[in-house]
Every structure is written in C-alpha cells, then in structure tokens.
C-alpha cells in the first residue's frame, strides 16, 4: 500500500457514494446511465470472487464488500425504486458490443488459463470501458448535472492515481501487471476529454454542457 493507491481507492469510494447520495437526495436518477452501473456491477462481481478463496487484509475485504453492495444498491435505485426517473431513451449505448468482445479477449489474452484468472481479466478489461454508456448519454443529451460531473471526475481520478501507484510499485517493488496497466491507461484516457471540460467549466462554477 502506498499513498497513491490509497488516494485512488478513496477517490473510487467517493465517486460511488457521490452517485448514491445524488440519487437518494434528489429521488431521481435522471442523467445516470443504468447500463454503466450494470457494467460496473459485473466488474465487481467477477473480480472479487477471490473474497471466497483468499483473505488479504481487513481493508481489502471491507472495500470489496462496500464496492459490490454500493453498486448493487445503485442498480436497484435506478431500475426499481426510481425507475420512473430513469432516462432510458438516452441510455442507448449498445453495452453488449462491449461485453461480448471483451469476454473473448479475456479468454485469449490473460496471465493464466484458469476460470478465476479469466474472470479477473474480463473484469479489468470491462472496467476500462464501463463508463462509455455514461459518456455517450452525456454527449447525447449535451449536458450533465454538476454532481454527476463530480462523480465522473472522482471516478476518472481513481484510475489515474492507480497508474501513479503502478509506476511507484515498479520502482520500489519491481511489481507490474501489464494487463492492469494497459487497461488502466485506456480507462484513464477515456476520461481526458471530460477532465478538460470539468476543469474549464465546472470548477469555474458553470454547468457542464458539451458542444453538440
């Protein structure tokens, strides 16, 4: 554990709770892509199967359980409790076009051909693109509430901080995992456009709107 990794995890946790609080307080999931949330649910459920096979630390176990539960609650709020507010007409990204090729890629390109390792690889690849339905939705409607943009910023920052953590670990522990690194870089790059808009608009107190 190092400071970058810890900051990344806190940023990730913050993102998930910003989204939950936004939905709960406004009693609405307007502007939120349910598809992205389902993809994140799949990411956590396939990656954290090792909860049942290996104990790493209390921190590790608690964080995994929180990520899974909080994401499942978010999915419940979007598709059940506040379903009437879910903007499904604008949540039209074809998520299966991500999931199917990624499942194939995980089977072909992995560290070890075993069930848990392939599922872990699938979750790493899938996480890198899971935000695409949400970004697509924002570009389609041309706007995002300020709180939604805080959510996206925290979520993007998380993987960016993990990259710094990987650089740190490479020099201090000679540890690297190229699957995580490549996918993490792709994931962070997807947010670049958004980061630019966030810094130039949201921080200056303006609503986020994207050029058509």
């Amino acid at each position: 554990m190092n400071i970058f990794r810890l900051a990344g995890d806190i940023s990730h946790l913050l993102a998930i709770f910003i989204l939950l609080i936004k939905i709960w307080r406004s009693r609405s999931c307007a502007g939120i892509s349910g598809k992205s949330q389902v993809l994140f649910g799949m990411v956590f459920l396939t990656r954290y199967l090792d909860l049942f096979t290996s104990f790493i630390s209390v921190y590790n176990t608690v964080m995994k359980v929180i990520f899974i539960l909080a994401t499942l609650v978010t999915i419940y709020l979007v598709f059940f409790k506040f379903r009437a507010t879910y903007d499904s007409n604008n949540d039209t990204f074809r998520a299966e076009l991500l999931v199917i090729p990624i499942a194939g890629l995980a089977v072909l390109v992995n560290h070890e051909f075993s069930l848990f390792e392939i599922l872990w690889t699938f979750s790493i690849y899938l996480e890198s693109v899971s935000i695409m339905p949400q970004l697509y939705m924002i570009s389609k409607t041309g706007e995002a509430e300020t709180i939604t943009s805080h959510y996206l910023f925290a979520l993007g920052l998380y993987r960016g901080l993990y990259i710094v953590n990987w650089v740190w670990r490479y020099y201090t522990e000679q540890f690297y995992d190229w699957i995580a690194i490549v996918a993490g870089v792709v994931q962070t790059l997807l947010y670049c456009d958004f980061f630019y808009l966030y810094i130039t608009k949201v921080i200056k107190g303006k609503e986020m709107s994207l050029p058509a």
Partner: peptide, 10 residues
C-alpha cells in the same frame, strides 16, 4: 512478476 493467487489491488 505477477502474483497469480493473491491480488491485493482493488
């Protein structure tokens, strides 16, 4: 080096 059994990162 990759620890295939235990992955400590989230």
């Amino acid at each position: 080096w990759i620890n295939r059994q235990i992955k400590d990162e989230l």
